[in-house]
């Protein structure tokens, strides 16, 4: 029995390896890389990343069905307000397949920052988004300075200090 069990475990291990091999295909946007430009429809006309050149841009990918995204909205409002004068621009890219779901969400969770819609998912694919929400802090030079996945109360300080250091960077 123990021999059989060992053989089976061996088989299971091989199967697990195959799984992990698959995860190799995924591309993740790394620090120091030029952030891919995008042009999307927003709540107030067209939104293009290149138009924000010279600002620090906080790009957030969110969905109406994601709980932590809901929590991040008041915080992003606060950040936009607090650091606007220093040159922060928050762009929240919604990735719902039906933009209608996003508009319902926005009615309940007002956004005082730029919101754009990408129902096809091309932008999150270029950015290698791994989960909801995902955020990328892009420096004044257009390069990615830090990336973050998920949102919860305990990470607010870390995120804010990342924004601050991006704003202060030369």
């Amino acid at each position: 029995m123990s021999l059989i069990r060992r053989k089976i475990l061996h088989g299971a291990t091989v199967a697990l390896m195959l799984f992990m091999g698959n995860s190799n295909d995924l591309f993740a946007l790394e620090k120091g890389v030029k952030a891919p430009d995008f042009q999307l429809t927003g709540t107030q006309g067209s939104v293009r990343l290149a138009d924000a050149a010279g600002s620090v841009v906080y790009v957030d990918f969110w969905a109406s069905w994601c709980g932590p995204c809901r929590q991040s909205f008041p915080w992003m409002n606060e950040m936009q307000e607090k650091y606007r004068a220093k040159g922060l621009k928050v762009i929240a890219v919604n990735v719902d397949a039906k933009s209608e779901d996003a508009r319902k969400f926005l009615a309940q969770n007002p956004a005082k920052f730029t919101v754009a819609f990408d129902s096809k998912g091309a932008t999150p694919a270029h950015y290698g988004v791994k989960g909801m929400p995902s955020s990328f802090i892009i420096g004044r030079d257009g390069k990615v300075m830090s990336t973050h996945l998920g949102f919860n109360a305990s990470e607010k300080e870390k995120l804010e200090s990342d924004i601050k250091s991006a704003l202060e960077a030369k």
Binding site: A15, F19, G21, W65, D96, G121, S134
Partner: peptide, 17 residues
């Protein structure tokens, strides 16, 4: 084995509504 090989793990994070 089937799940790993068939590439069915292709659902993207933003497609999990």
């Amino acid at each position: 084995g089937i799940a790993g090989l068939s590439g069915c793990a292709s659902v993207q994070p933003w497609e999990k509504q």
